[in-house]
Deep mutational scan, measured.
Amino acid sequence: TFTSYQLEELEKVFQKTHYPDVYAREQLAMRTDLTEARVQVWFQNRRA
């Protein structure tokens, strides 16, 4: 599960791009204290 802060950050990036590159995902992962893999999976699920 994600915190409301994490979801907010993820959604913010999703609004800009549905396909963030690895750099964007790593920045987001650091900001949200998630792994890059978790961020990647979240985007895959969000796009589905």
Rank of each mutant, 00 (worst) to 15 (best):
T1Q: 13
L28R: 13
T3D: 05
Q6W: 02
A48M: 12
T35R: 03
V13F: 08
T17I: 06
Q27N: 07
R46V: 02
R46E: 04
F43H: 00
Y19R: 04
L28C: 02
V41Y: 13
A37S: 09
A24W: 06
F2Q: 02
M30N: 13
L34K: 00
T32L: 15
R38L: 14
N45M: 13
V41S: 14
M30V: 10
E11W: 04
K12M: 08
F14Y: 12
R46F: 01
L28E: 00
A37M: 08
V22N: 09
T17C: 13
T32I: 15
L34S: 05
S4C: 13
T17Y: 07
Q6L: 02
R25A: 05
Y23R: 13
E26T: 12
R25F: 08
E11Q: 04
E11D: 04
A24S: 09
K12E: 11
E36T: 08
S4Q: 13
R47F: 03
F2A: 02
V13I: 09
Y5K: 09
T35C: 05
A37G: 09
W42C: 03
V13M: 14
T17V: 06
A29E: 03
K16V: 13
V39F: 02
T17D: 13
Y5S: 08
D33I: 05
E11P: 01
E11V: 13
F2W: 08
F2T: 03
T1C: 11
F14R: 01
L34C: 05
A24E: 15
Y5A: 09
A29Y: 04
Y5V: 07
F2P: 04
E8P: 15
Q15H: 08
V39H: 00
R25D: 01
Q15I: 13
T3Y: 05
F2C: 03
Y5F: 12
K16D: 08
H18K: 10
R47T: 04
K12D: 04
Y5D: 08
V41Q: 15
Y5Q: 09
W42E: 01
H18A: 12
P20T: 01
L7T: 07
W42I: 03
L10S: 00
Q15N: 09
Q44L: 06
R47H: 05
V41R: 12
R31N: 06
T17K: 03
F14P: 00
E26G: 09
R46T: 03
E9M: 09
R47Q: 05
V41N: 14
R31E: 05
A29R: 06
N45H: 12
F2R: 01
H18E: 08
N45T: 08
E8T: 08
H18W: 13
L28A: 02
E26P: 02
T35Y: 02
M30Y: 12
V22L: 14
V39I: 15
E9P: 00
T35P: 07
M30H: 11
L34M: 08
E8H: 08
F14Q: 01
Y23A: 12
E26Q: 14
P20F: 03
Y5N: 10
V41K: 14
E9N: 04
E8K: 09
A29N: 15
A48V: 09
T3Q: 06
L7F: 04
R25T: 10
E8Q: 11
E26Y: 13
K16E: 15
S4H: 13
Y19H: 08
P20K: 06
Q44W: 06
Y23E: 11
E9H: 05
R46G: 02
Y23N: 14
